[in-house]
Simulated assay, not measured.
Amino acid sequence: MPKSHTRKKAVYTPPQKSQQVKVSPRWLAPLMVISWIVGILWIAVFYIMPTAPGIGVLGNWNLAVGFVLIIFGVILSTRWR
């Protein structure tokens, strides 16, 4: 049985790219936490005082506003490194 040919050239290995650590902007974490807190407080204040000035005008849309703020915080948390 014939012997297989050996490779004479070295296999090309691309140079290693330096792995830079990605860092989040400084404003991201505070905005994320503030968004969660404001969203939860918005819903809580609506349940405690549904006729409060400014809040009573929106009616049940206050729940949507609170949940949008909470979801915004969750979306920001996916960007946090």
Rank of each mutant, 00 (worst) to 15 (best):
P2S: 04
P2W: 00
P2Y: 01
S4V: 10
S4A: 11
S4T: 01
S4M: 05
S4G: 07
H5I: 08
H5V: 07
T6A: 13
T6E: 15
T6P: 09
R7A: 11
R7Q: 09
K9Y: 06
A10L: 01
A10S: 03
A10G: 02
A10W: 00
T13E: 02
T13N: 03
P14M: 11
P15G: 05
P15H: 01
Q16E: 05
Q16W: 01
Q16N: 06
Q16L: 09
K17F: 14
K17P: 08
S18K: 05
Q19D: 07
Q19L: 14
Q20I: 15
Q20M: 15
Q20V: 15
V21W: 02
V21P: 04
V21H: 09
V21E: 08
K22G: 09
K22S: 10
V23K: 15
S24Q: 13
S24L: 01
S24C: 11
P25K: 11
R26F: 15
R26V: 11
W27P: 13
L28N: 10
L28R: 02
L28F: 08
A29H: 07
P30N: 05
P30C: 09
L31C: 14
L31A: 15
L31D: 04
M32D: 02
M32W: 03
I34M: 10
I34G: 09
I34L: 13
I34W: 08
S35T: 10
S35H: 06
W36V: 04
W36D: 00
W36C: 01
I37Y: 12
I37R: 04
I37C: 14
V38L: 08
V38A: 14
V38Y: 00
V38P: 02
I40T: 09
L41M: 06
W42T: 03
I43N: 00
I43D: 00
A44Y: 03
A44C: 07
A44H: 06
A44V: 15
V45N: 02
F46A: 03
I48P: 10
I48R: 14
I48S: 02
M49D: 12
P50V: 13
P50K: 01
T51A: 13
T51V: 12
T51C: 13
T51L: 07
A52E: 09
P53N: 08
P53S: 05
G54R: 07
I55Y: 13
I55S: 07
G56H: 00
G56L: 05
V57G: 11
V57H: 11
L58P: 03
L58I: 04
L58T: 10
G59P: 04
N60L: 11
N60A: 11
N60Y: 02
W61S: 06
W61D: 06
W61Q: 02
N62D: 10
L63M: 12
A64K: 00
A64M: 01
V65F: 11
F67D: 03
F67I: 13
V68G: 06
V68A: 07
V68E: 07
V68Q: 00
L69W: 09
L69H: 10
I71C: 07
F72C: 04
G73W: 00
V74K: 06
I75F: 14
I75D: 00
I75C: 05
S77Q: 13
R79T: 06
W80Q: 14
R81D: 03
R81P: 08
R81C: 08
R81T: 12
R81K: 13
